[in-house]
Design a protein around this nucleic acid. Structure first.
Lengths: 133, 133
DNA sequence: AATAATTTGCGAATGACTTGCAAATATGAG
DNA sequence: CTCATATTTGCAAGTCATTCGCAAATTATT
């Protein structure tokens, strides 16, 4: 495992929320070229050590966000994204396995991946925006 | 309602699956500049006449896909996308309302939008790929 | 029909992500 | 530990979807 990969994995592992490539590129412990960052994020995801999804946010535009994934347990999380403060809230482990296999049986397809996330206003931003009445 | 908007809405209305901006731009009945297409897709979505989500596919890259939405009934659909033939399969009306309000209560946030879709191999592509054994 | 407001087309810009290639680093056989 | 091979890195230049500025054209108002 190269230095770049170790460094990226470390940031993902210790991050509370999904992080974008641009965020990683600016991160002090990631002193690698953007191409290296992108290439290794792909690598980590291929190896089952990271998860990602694409989200559009008014402030940061359309970007892919990555989070650490333990190769052992197959679990991944889903997230809520606040449109004001742009923070993520962890909704916990994915609970869609059953629903997915029901769909697989109903339609005959095989699901390789799924994307699910919420966007809206978090509790804090809702109250600070309430002044707009 | 301008000609461009009418034309776009007509294509969305008659399309069986979500369509991307690039697809619309190439569509014979859409003889408008790409900027006009993009601007009006935003407009239609703002007005509640269209729905969209961003999906990355190996053949077409990362693009936003639009589908017609009836302003009256709030329903929208979710989709499965085949990674081989790149067609969409309609999974029917969204059934996440309850789950979303449970989350809203648990976390105190307000959900404005959500994204959900599946990717994988459709029935037909699975069998034609079976030769890879 | 005349005027004001909105929309269009064009061309150039933006920003995320990718690629080619030579230099640098990791791997691993001896 | 060392040389040879395979892989990865940095750099600079692309791609590609999407956006923007602005003048001309269209639509809505009066």
């Amino acid at each position: 495992m190269t230095k770049a990969r170790k460094a990226l994995l470390e940031v993902l592992k210790t991050s509370e929320e999904p992080v974008s490539a641009s965020h990683l590129i600016k991160h002090p412990s990631i002193r690698f070229d953007q191409a290296t960052v992108y290439r290794n994020l792909h690598y980590l995801e291929e190896q089952g050590m990271a998860d990602s999804f694409i989200l559009h946010c008014t402030e940061h535009g359309t970007e892919r966000y990555y989070s650490y994934r333990n190769r052992e347990d197959a679990s991944h999380h889903h997230w809520f994204h606040c449109q004001i403060c742009h923070r993520f809230i962890d909704l916990g482990d994915c609970r869609y396995d059953e629903q997915l296999s029901r769909w697989e049986q109903a339609y005959g397809f095989t699901v390789c991946d799924h994307t699910f996330f919420l966007t809206g206003l978090c509790k804090a931003c809702k109250s600070s925006t309430a002044s707009a009445n």
